[in-house]
Amino acid sequence: MTDFRLTPQHTDGDLALAHIAGELNLATAPLLRAQALALIEQGHRHLILDLSAVTFCDSTGFSALIGIYRCAKTTDGTLVLAAVPARLERLLDLTGLSALLPAHPTAAHALVAHTPSPDTATA
């Protein structure tokens, strides 16, 4: 089996940040989907997936991301990507998935973007 790891880095209330390492392919996409959906089922309906250590992603990997997005959406949640490698970012753009799956340059940026500012939290 191909090397793959999904490691939760931050879980706080309805938000989870997970770091993904390895390949997203036919062998590993079901693991990605199952582990991400488990986070949603645990109440973390807003997911940030840090893809900085993803070395390869084929159509089954993209399909898993779409499935995770759909599941998050059914719980009024979100799926956001972070630190997407340039080669994957290009494929997301070419396929139109970048419009569906917003990306941030780093996981830290994604966390800050998710955190409501004091002005909007009291409005």
Rank of each mutant, 00 (worst) to 15 (best):
Met1Ala: 15
Met1Pro: 11
Thr2Asp: 15
Asp3Ala: 15
Phe4His: 04
Phe4Pro: 00
Phe4Tyr: 09
Arg5His: 14
Leu6Phe: 09
Gln9Ile: 09
Gln9Thr: 12
His10Val: 09
His10Thr: 09
His10Arg: 11
His10Pro: 04
Thr11Cys: 13
Thr11Trp: 03
Asp12Lys: 10
Asp12Phe: 09
Gly13His: 03
Asp14Val: 01
Leu15Met: 02
Ala16Thr: 04
Leu17Asn: 03
Leu17Ile: 10
His19Ile: 06
His19Ser: 14
Ile20Thr: 07
Gly22Met: 06
Gly22His: 02
Glu23Thr: 11
Glu23Cys: 09
Asn25Tyr: 05
Leu26Gly: 11
Leu26His: 14
Thr28Leu: 08
Ala29Arg: 05
Pro30Trp: 07
Leu31His: 13
Leu31Gln: 15
Leu31Phe: 13
Leu32Cys: 01
Gln35His: 03
Ala36Asp: 02
Ala38Tyr: 06
Ala38Leu: 08
Leu39Glu: 00
Ile40Gln: 00
Glu41Val: 11
Gln42Ile: 05
Arg45Ile: 14
Arg45Tyr: 11
Leu47Cys: 10
Leu47Arg: 05
Leu47Gly: 06
Leu47Ser: 08
Ile48Val: 15
Leu49Gly: 01
Leu49Cys: 06
Leu49Ser: 02
Leu49Ala: 04
Leu49Asp: 01
Asp50Gln: 06
Asp50Arg: 02
Leu51Cys: 07
Ser52Asp: 12
Ala53Leu: 11
Thr55Asp: 12
Thr55Gly: 13
Phe56Ala: 02
Cys57Arg: 00
Asp58His: 11
Asp58Phe: 12
Asp58Gly: 12
Ser59Asp: 04
Ser59Glu: 04
Ser59Trp: 03
Thr60Trp: 05
Gly61Leu: 05
Gly61Glu: 03
Gly61Cys: 05
Phe62Pro: 01
Phe62Arg: 01
Ser63Arg: 08
Ala64Lys: 00
Ala64Cys: 07
Ala64Arg: 00
Leu65Thr: 00
Leu65Val: 04
Leu65Met: 06
Ile66Leu: 15
Gly67Met: 09
Ile68Gln: 04
Ile68Glu: 05
Tyr69Val: 07
Cys71Leu: 11
Thr75Asp: 11
Gly77Tyr: 00
Thr78Val: 15
Thr78Asn: 15
Leu79Asp: 06
Ala82Glu: 08
Pro85Arg: 07
Ala86His: 11
Arg87His: 15
Leu88Gly: 02
Glu89Lys: 12
Glu89Met: 14
Glu89Val: 05
Leu91Gln: 13
Leu91Gly: 08
Asp93Ser: 15
Asp93Glu: 15
Leu94Cys: 02
Thr95Arg: 06
Gly96Arg: 09
Leu97Trp: 00
Leu97His: 00
Leu100Cys: 06
Leu100Val: 14
Leu100Lys: 02
Leu101Gly: 01
Leu101Ala: 03
Ala103Trp: 01
His104Thr: 07
His104Ile: 08
Pro105Tyr: 02
Thr106Ser: 14
Ala107Leu: 08
Ala107Asp: 07
Ala108Asn: 06
His109Asn: 10
Leu111Trp: 05
Leu111Gln: 09
Leu111Asp: 02
Leu111Phe: 07
Ala113Ser: 10
Ala113Lys: 08
His114Gly: 07
Thr115Phe: 11
Pro116Phe: 04
Ser117Val: 10
Ala121Pro: 08
Thr122Arg: 14
Thr122Phe: 13
Thr122Tyr: 12
Ala123Met: 11
Ala123Val: 14
